[in-house]
């Protein structure tokens, strides 16, 4: 297998386990951890594709830096949401928080 295929498979591991965690976890913080795993898989895939195909290495590396910036922004917002939810519902489990019936 070529190096790019191997790196893409490693990124795929991160994506699959992250999606598994997103469905499996019950608390919001556990879901946040799973989302971070998936974002890391995306970043690894972008950098591997850019560095090993030899086409636009700068674009790939900068794209991953932007993904990291967005991940930091997303983690900040989720922290605020967790604080608000735990104040209002005294729990961060998604089953306790969901109020819509149907």
């Amino acid at each position: 297998m070529s190096p790019l295929t191997l790196f893409q498979l490693a990124a795929l591991i991160l994506l699959a386990i992250g999606m598994y965690g997103l469905v499996w976890r019950k608390s919001l913080v556990g879901m946040l951890i799973s989302v971070e795993l998936m974002l890391n898989g995306a970043g690894l895939s972008i950098v591997a594709a850019a560095q090993l195909s030899g086409k636009e290495p700068a674009l790939g590396q900068l794209g991953t830096l932007l993904v990291m910036g967005l991940a930091a922004a997303e983690a900040t917002l989720v922290l605020a949401i967790v604080v608000v939810v735990s104040k209002r519902f005294k729990s961060i489990e998604t089953d306790a928080v969901s109020e819509l019936k149907g």
């Binding site: 990291m68 991940a71 922290l79 967790v82």
Partner: peptide
């Protein structure tokens, strides 16, 4: 960014949620 900042943010989220 990740090891330094995001993981500390997640740790804060765990603490503030009073699990």
């Amino acid at each position: 960014i990740y090891v330094g900042a995001v993981s500390v943010l997640i740790l804060l989220a765990i603490m503030l949620a009073r699990a």
